[in-house]
């Protein structure tokens, strides 16, 4: 061990700043209204209910395209955050400079499995990076509403990693 551990606030601030830097510049994330919660390296995304997300006004139900987009955003943010994690922990990235952040991974393909219709309420999602290599990554993501054990949508995507 070398020296004292950093104060917890310093670490939290750095991690939150990294997450914010990833997310805040993307207009589409703001358009859908997606928010992110972080506990350590675990990220939970929230899609708060909004009328403009509705795909079936009769039921009503959320639009499958909107919930698929929510999962794709969650997968990309999870993958990017896990990619940055070590540099953030070591303080090697200057988060005040958006140009210092690496580019976002690009989606190669995304397969969405609609398990139930999305109810007109908030949705949550968490992604798991199953494989992350130098060039390609495979990410699984699950979305749920009231019950964590009853997902209403899940997806798997392949992503092209940005060149560092």
């Amino acid at each position: 061990m070398t020296g004292k551990p950093e104060p917890v606030q310093v670490i939290k601030h750095r991690r939150d700043a990294a997450l914010r830097a990833l997310v805040s510049g993307v207009p589409y994330i703001g358009f859908l209204g997606i928010q992110f919660d972080r506990r350590g390296d675990e990220i939970t995304a929230t899609l708060p209910y909004d009328d403009k997300l509705v795909g079936n006004p009769m039921l009503p139900a959320l639009h499958g395209g909107a919930t698929a987009a929510f999962l794709e955003v969650t997968a990309i943010v999870e993958l990017s955050f896990s990619m940055l994690w070590e540099d953030v922990e070591a303080g090697r990235i200057d988060l005040s400079d958006p140009a210092a952040l690496p580019r976002l991974p690009k989606t190669i393909d995304f397969t969405v499995d609609y398990l139930r219709s999305g109810l007109p309420r908030d949705s949550y999602a968490r992604a798991r990076v199953n494989r992350s290599g130098r060039r390609y990554a495979s990410v699984h993501v699950e979305g749920w509403q009231d019950n964590r054990t009853r997902p209403f949508i899940q997806a798997t995507g392949h992503f092209l990693m940005p060149e560092l």
């Binding site: 859908l32 395209g65 698929a68 955003v73 995304f110």
Partner: peptide, 10 residues
């Protein structure tokens, strides 16, 4: 964003 294109395709 790809998500918007998937909404269109859906």
């Amino acid at each position: 964003h790809g998500g918007a294109i998937s909404a269109l395709m859906d």
